[in-house]
Amino acid sequence: MAEPGDTSVLATAKAKSQKSHELASCVIKEPLFSYAHLQVLNGNPLQEPIELDALQVRSYCTAALQQFLGIAGTAISIDILKVDGSDCWLRVPRDSLGAFSAAITAWRGTNENGVHTTFRVKGCSDWLGSLVGQVGQDTLWSK
């Protein structure tokens, strides 16, 4: 028979009443990669938006990194996740995000057939989910 102060009986009763169990837990303090959302802009707002492809994105980013950081800038790894019309989403090493976004912001762009083309940084984040969730926020209050 259990004594009134017996803790083993209380522990057993508590264990039986608990329906869920934690199998594993993980805390990610510093992810390896960061993400950037870029939009290509042309100098003439009356023209149709430019449709990007992965090769153009790679070329423009390489030009921006080389202009800003020289040969060391071209060593920054860039993964093109998605290209959709004039927008693109990229993955870069977390430690290089500051240099990458500074290079894209400072890039003077290209001039082809009298049309000036450059990038706009729409967002940067360590978490892709929070970056993708920002799509369309700029039109929320303007309509």
Rank of each mutant, 00 (worst) to 15 (best):
R108C: 04
S77F: 10
L128Y: 08
T139Y: 09
G109Y: 03
L52W: 05
L38W: 01
Q56V: 08
T118K: 15
D95P: 03
S59Q: 14
D79T: 12
L38Y: 01
V40W: 08
H37R: 15
L23S: 11
S34N: 10
F33T: 15
T74R: 14
Y35M: 04
T110M: 05
S86A: 09
G109N: 01
L52F: 08
Q39G: 04
G129S: 12
I76L: 08
S101C: 03
T12V: 09
W107P: 00
A72Q: 11
L10N: 09
E22V: 15
L52A: 03
R108L: 04
T117G: 01
I80M: 07
K16T: 13
D87A: 03
Q47D: 11
F68W: 00
F100R: 00
F68S: 00
L131M: 04
A11Q: 13
S17E: 12
E112H: 10
S20F: 15
V121D: 00
A64T: 01
N113A: 14
H116T: 05
V132P: 04
Q67A: 10
L32E: 15
W89E: 06
G73W: 00
V27A: 07
I71A: 15
I80D: 04
L90V: 06
D138F: 08
N44Y: 14
R94I: 02
T7Q: 13
V83I: 05
Q47A: 13
H37M: 14
S59C: 07
A64R: 00
A64E: 00
V132G: 03
A102V: 00
A63W: 05
T7S: 12
L23E: 09
L128N: 08
S20K: 15
K143C: 08
L81N: 09
G85F: 04
L140H: 11
S59M: 13
V40C: 13
E3H: 15
V57W: 05
A63Y: 03
V92D: 02
R108Q: 14
R120S: 02
G136P: 07
A99F: 01
Q39R: 15
A75Q: 09
D138K: 14
Q134F: 06
I78Q: 04
E48Q: 15
Q39Y: 06
E112Y: 09
K143H: 13
T74S: 09
V132I: 14
L140N: 09
G114M: 04
G5T: 14
H37K: 13
Q134C: 11
A13Q: 15
S101L: 00
G5A: 10
P4Q: 02
V92G: 05
L46P: 06
Q137N: 12
D87P: 02
G123L: 00
H37Y: 11
Q134P: 02
C88I: 02
Q47T: 05
Y60T: 02
G129L: 06
K19P: 07
Q39I: 05
A103S: 07
K16E: 14
I80V: 14
M1D: 07
S130K: 13
I71T: 15
L38V: 08
K122N: 13
A106D: 01
E3V: 08
M1Q: 10
L131H: 06
N44K: 12
P4N: 03
Y35K: 06
E51W: 03
H116C: 04
N111G: 02
D138T: 12
F68C: 00
G133V: 06
S34C: 11
P4Y: 02
P31W: 06
R108K: 12
K29M: 12
S101K: 00
E51L: 14
C124Q: 14
E48G: 03
M1R: 11
